[in-house]
């Protein structure tokens, strides 16, 4: 059975459209909670701010590039994402988290867990792709970056000083190398 989209999808749309008013509502609902969670767990307001912004940009990225649709309420979803992010950050800093994983403050449905986990996985995957990309030769990186600018391929070829045919050939070679690098990294 296909899951229905939750009405809170509107918050995702707010991010996608940079709708300041609705985004303000997100802050009103969630910022304080994230702040107190982080501050109670070896962090400060600056950490909370970074985590919160990062989480919102991640959600934006997932919605825009991976077609994320919310099947659970937004608030617990975002809080869970922030929390996991912060716990990961603590792990990186080698500080052990104080509180336990499960949240006594919130009622969290299975969907919420699933979606938060999905988001985290996707972000990790993206990082992996980027790492692989950076292992490519300079010329390949240049060609791929240029092709992503959304200009006509003929123009890209011109900018790079090569023929269209050569660009196509070179680009597919570069992309194939990248695919292989990604597979090695997995």
């Amino acid at each position: 059975m296909a899951k229905t989209v939750h009405p809170d999808q509107r918050y995702l749309l707010a991010l996608l459209n940079n709708d300041a008013q609705l985004i303000n509502e997100i802050y009103k609902k969630c910022a304080g909670k994230v702040k107190s969670f982080v501050c109670f767990n070896n962090g400060d307001a600056n950490d909370a701010e970074d985590i919160f912004q990062e989480a919102l940009v991640d959600v934006y990225n997932q919605a825009k590039y991976k077609g994320l649709e919310l099947t659970c309420p937004f608030e617990p979803f975002l809080l869970l994402v922030c929390k996991r992010k912060w716990l990961n950050e603590l792990k990186k800093r080698a500080v052990l988290p104080v509180t336990k994983e499960e949240d006594s403050l919130l009622h969290i449905g299975e969907d919420t867990f699933e979606q938060a986990e999905q988001l985290e996985k996707q972000q990790e995957q993206s990082k992996l792709f980027l790492k692989a990309f950076e292992k490519l030769g300079e010329r390949c990186q240049e060609i791929i970056r240029w092709s992503l600018k959304g200009e006509a391929q003929e123009k890209v070829a011109e900018a790079l000083g090569v023929t269209y045919g050569y660009l196509r050939k070179k680009k597919s070679e570069c992309m194939a190398s990248l695919m292989k690098l990604v597979q090695l990294n997995k």
């Binding site: 985004i23 910022a31 702040k35 919102l56 940009v57 990309f133």
Partner: peptide, 28 residues
């Protein structure tokens, strides 16, 4: 898709980050 997300310029995302920056100082 991943490359687009990571490397393509995204004007809306830049604008969004500015919005978030402003709200950050207000709420944090």
């Amino acid at each position: 898709q991943n490359l687009r997300q990571q490397l393509a310029p995204d004007a809306v995302r830049e604008a969004l980050q500015q919005t978030l920056g402003k709200l950050n100082s207000q709420y944090f």
